[in-house]
Design a protein around this nucleic acid. Sequence first.
RNA 1: GCCGGGUUCGCCUAGUGGUAGGGCGGCAGCCUGCUAAGCUGUUUAGUCAGAAAUGGCUUUCGCGAGUUCGAAUCUCGCACCCGGCGCCA
Length: 431
Amino acid sequence: MLTTKYVRDHIAEIRESLQRRKSDYPIDDLLKLDEEWRGLQTKLQELQARRNRESLEISAIKKEGGNADGRISALAAVKAEINKIEAELPSYEDRINHLMWNMPNVLHGSVKYGKDETENVEIRRWGETKAAVAGGHTEILEKSGLVDVERAAKVAGARFYYLKGDLVLLAKSLERYALDFLVEKGYVPLQTPYMMKKEYYKGVTGLGDFEDALYTAGRPMEAKPEEMREGEELLLIATSEHPIAAMHAGEVFSAKELPLKYVGVSPCFRREAGSHGKDTKGIFRVHQFDKVEQFVFCSQEESSRIYDEIVANEEGIFQRLGIPYHVIEMCTGDIGIVAAKKIDLEGWFPSQQRYRELTSASNCTDWQSVRLDIKYDDRGERRYVHTLNGTAISIERALTAIAENYANADGTITVPDALVQYMGKERIGGR
RNA sequence: GCCGGGUUCGCCUAGUGGUAGGGCGGCAGCCUGCUAAGCUGUUUAGUCAGAAAUGGCUUUCGCGAGUUCGAAUCUCGCACCCGGCGCCA
């Protein structure tokens, strides 16, 4: 069962944070269940101690050739009581786990209250925004034959796409560019599994995401859904953040192994339930995309500094690509339950004359590590690591930003300087 | 997919129904003058008491269920690893 000691140790901060979120999370229910569970646990342990003690006495009697039948039948009542308590415990544990998995993280002190994404706070801007040259990314890319959304809809449905020709090469160039950028800074490249067990998924994201974001995959052909055991089905990953976080579940790092920095690369699969009608054209919001992701395990003292580093990497990557952007800090209404602090970097889209999300960085502090049991040895004391994640490049999303910001009047797209060495040419598209 | 062999503390290993033991490594302490050795302790997690140092109890032999007063050990199911066969990008 997930450790509730953590909640008791941090109860003041948890309450304060829930108030700032104006959350209706039932923290008192959790504390009450926990207290009842511990009471049962104590009773059970006393009975087990008695059983163990008397079993040893029976052993001693039998070794001396005596008759222990009376003692054995006297223990039957104890055994019945043990069985009764053991039968009650799972229902408490299920409810406690469910509440733990849904408990919002303790917010960083700087996070402001806000009802939804309209109340996020802009903290800085970079680059010069410009007017649209040749329409939106959908128009630019389709005219040049670089994407085929219609046939993808025929074959796979809405929100899928074929990339074609030089756009495929540009996508791979972006991927390699982002990998090289981070490898140079000491990040270890990691290509992850694309499916993951539910039991690990619960530790990396809120249960709400299971409904809205995740596809189920890998159900055994012969198994009917109602026969599936908990955690048996595989889920398609929504980001490589998730398998990277789960990778070290149950482990204890030594202090000198930290910080451990990965740069993950994987496709991402998202149901996008609840976003009907939003961004339905082109490849801006799709069910499947590729992403290069930063992920760091570190000590509790380091996580603020590393959060800044991850954000700086994101800005460096887009500055070298020459995409104008601004940085916004999530308010309580848009931050979700996992992160303690979260920023998005939004790039300028000339055709829409506004900034749209390109990357997202979160300091999850110990939310994931508590649920995945990932610790480190801090001079003999075992403490939960902090985990952080941040997009390096979300490939298809970045392609839309490049298409719009580098579009020329003749329908071609200039290849950003940083990618020319990978592309081997300076311009793509056109007729 | 089939056949065989495995899974005991960080690593190696003993243990065929009666208190999970040994070795190595790590950590802490002690002792000792010679590049290191020796000795002692400690090395799963939870819970209770305590301000704390600590102490009690439970738990832990891949996971789950069962038999039993008592399971690493017996029974059933499952997972994973290694070897072989088959298939295969």
